[in-house]
Design a protein around this nucleic acid. Structure first.
Length: 287
DNA sequence: ATCCAGTCCG
DNA sequence: CGGACTGGAT
């Protein structure tokens, strides 16, 4: 079934229909056969590569991660290398992905894996969730994609597909109602490929139908980027990466916003452990 | 304007 | 629970 055929009319599946799983998965398989998206982290599967890709993919488009992932892996090929790298070097390779805290988390995770777990990433999602920057969705993704275990997790593409086909018109829908439906539909013979397919289909749906995720209980509109604290933070990171350590005064003045505000933002970044202040010289944290 | 393989903090 | 966190493509 070509992608366009899927949109000729909204196909509604009833979660209670005993044949729903068969029908849904037949449709999904046919879509996937013709529309699968090749991605660097779907080949050469290793716990490290999957972890890095999943951290990068949080709130970040596939197209952007596709551009950054190979270079990052080339510079930091394994847990060991990433663990001993400086945050500055990691952020340099991270630039353009945004949400810099994730890079900090990733470094902390690499250190835990090498220092405490003998270089092995656990295959237990509950253990993974104790790591910084890893919640339910990322833990489920990592374990399913690395080890092909049949876990149930929800991220934006999965949510979109299930809202579209199983909860048409219902508003709002909490994830708690979606989990059992996924549980019933999940192809336990190959969960990895099944999630690949659902996610590719969800991405395909994006933009072609009015976003079903707006009917999720967990949907929130985000504030505009222009003029936001996030934009100022991005500027600070960029400035420090190009100039090296800078006096606090200079940095705050060159943020392009009033100095009280930029000072507050800077303090927050220091609190988060991204930057440090040594007698009013601002730089990235070390070791 | 909208939204992207979410998580954390208060 | 609400809000913060990135930056770019469309």
């Amino acid at each position: 079934m070509a992608g366009a055929d899927l949109l000729s009319g909204e196909i509604v599946f009833s979660p209670d229909d005993p044949d729903a799983a068969g029908h849904f998965n037949r449709m999904l398989r046919e879509f996937y056969r013709q529309n699968r998206r090749p991605m660097p982290w779907r080949v050469n599967l290793s716990p490290y590569r999957v972890l890095v890709s999943e951290m990068m993919l949080q709130q970040t488009q596939v197209s952007r991660v596709t551009q950054k992932f190979p270079g990052f892996i080339a510079v930091f090929p394994d847990f060991q290398t990433l663990g001993v790298a400086s945050l500055e070097d990691i952020l340099r390779s991270w630039q353009g992905l945004g949400y810099n805290r994730r890079a900090k988390y990733l470094q902390a995770i690499a250190r835990t894996v090498t220092d405490k777990w003998n270089g092995e990433l656990p295959d237990d999602p509950a253990v993974l969730e104790t790591l910084p920057g890893i919640g339910k969705a990322t833990a489920g993704s990592i374990v399913t994609f690395t080890w092909n275990y049949p876990l149930v997790f929800i991220e934006t593409n999965v949510r979109r597909v299930f809202l579209y086909h199983f909860f048409p018109g219902k508003d709002p829908v909490p994830d708690r109602e979606i989990y059992p439906v996924i549980e019933r539909m999940l192809d336990r013979s190959n969960p990895r490929e099944w999630y690949y397919a659902v996610m590719d289909y969800g991405a395909f749906l994006s933009g072609r139908v009015s976003n079903p995720n707006r009917r999720s209980s967990h949907y929130a509109v985000q504030s505009p980027f222009g003029g936001s604290d996030r934009q100022v933070r991005g500027g600070i990171i960029r400035m420090l990466l190009s100039h090296g350590p800078m006096p606090r005064e200079d940095l705050v003045r060159r943020c392009g916003t009033d100095e009280t505000r930029s000072g507050d933002i800077l303090s927050r970044m220091i609190n988060e452990g991204i930057l440090k202040d040594n007698s009013s010289i601002i730089s990235f944290v070390e070791v």
